[in-house]
Design a protein around this nucleic acid. Structure first.
Length: 267
DNA sequence: ATGCCTGCGGTTCGCAGA
């Protein structure tokens, strides 16, 4: 089974590219980010016609996540819980969890869109990113207690290591590369989550994002910020992971490309 | 250098993204 994650940067602008990629690559579950659409106007008809069930958590204009799955949803949970002391709801749509049955075992798949966090001197931005990562950490810890298979897929807006960007000096000080950001990503993995791509390859220069500006794509000035993390129960069924870099060359591309993993049936 | 694109909302410019 193929499980993918892709920040499509607007479902209305990317609809036809998404359909073409679904037809060609035929993933079983796809986590989308930045759908930039409200749930009631999400154009899911053609996706459903290809055999997918579609669940969205959208908002007007910005953010928004979705999961398209050939497996039927047993349960859907929208929104990352706030920290215990908070009394307000998260106004930004950045998190959706689908619960599936795969060979009679629970499989949870999450599509997340972690805040960018720039500029770092604006607490509404960078502090919000760090707080969101702390909430994700708490959420993951509670899910790990269930001892079930889950895959945390999405646009993390985190460059984990120097080798994950074309020029680390350019990204020094950026919210995607700040020590506070990277240590939180490491702390999340230290709970016992396995990063799919780094289980397949230790190569430098594997990227999932190239900016539209300054000829970043033809110069290969990319960064690796879209990640697939697996719980121990999911990692046992992990087969391999790759990035569909070729999609960046298609007409009217997203600035991100899909990342996917192959998942075998649990015993 | 925080813009050199792009998408979106809602109108033709401002904001966000990374």
């Amino acid at each position: 089974m193929k499980i993918a994650s892709w920040n499509i940067n607007g479902i209305k602008a990317r609809h036809d590219v998404l359909i073409a990629w679904l037809k060609q690559e035929q993933p079983d579950i796809v986590c989308l980010q930045e759908i930039k659409s409200m749930d009631e106007v999400f154009p899911g008809g053609e996706i459903e016609a290809l055999g997918y069930n579609v669940e969205t958590h959208g908002q007007k204009g910005f953010n928004g996540v979705a999961i398209c799955s050939k497996l039927p949803f047993d349960e859907v949970n929208r929104g990352l819980p706030m920290l215990a002391q908070s009394t307000i709801e998260d106004p930004q749509a950045r998190f959706i969890e689908g619960v599936f049955s795969f060979n009679n075992k629970v499989l949870r798949v999450i599509s997340l869109y972690l805040p960018n966090g720039n500029p770092v001197d604006d607490p509404r931005k960078f502090e919000h990113k760090l707080e969101w990562m702390d909430r994700l950490h708490d959420w993951a810890r509670s899910r790990l207690d269930l001892e079930e298979a889950f895959i945390l897929a999405g646009d993390y807006n985190v460059i984990p290591q120097n080798e994950d960007c074309w020029d680390p000096t350019v990204w020094q000080g950026d919210a995607l590369f700040r020590p506070e950001t990277r240590t939180r990503f490491e702390a999340l993995k230290n709970l016992g989550l396995t990063e799919a791509l780094r289980s397949s390859s230790d190569q430098s220069g594997i990227y999932t994002f190239w900016d539209y500006q300054a000829g970043a794509w033809p110069k290969n000035h990319g960064i690796r910020i879209d990640h697939l993390l697996m719980s121990p129960e999911a990692a046992m069924n992990f087969v391999g992971c790759d990035v569909d870099k070729f999609v960046r060359d298609w007409e009217k591309p997203s600035d991100h490309v899909p990342i996917w993993l192959e998942y075998e049936s649990p015993n």
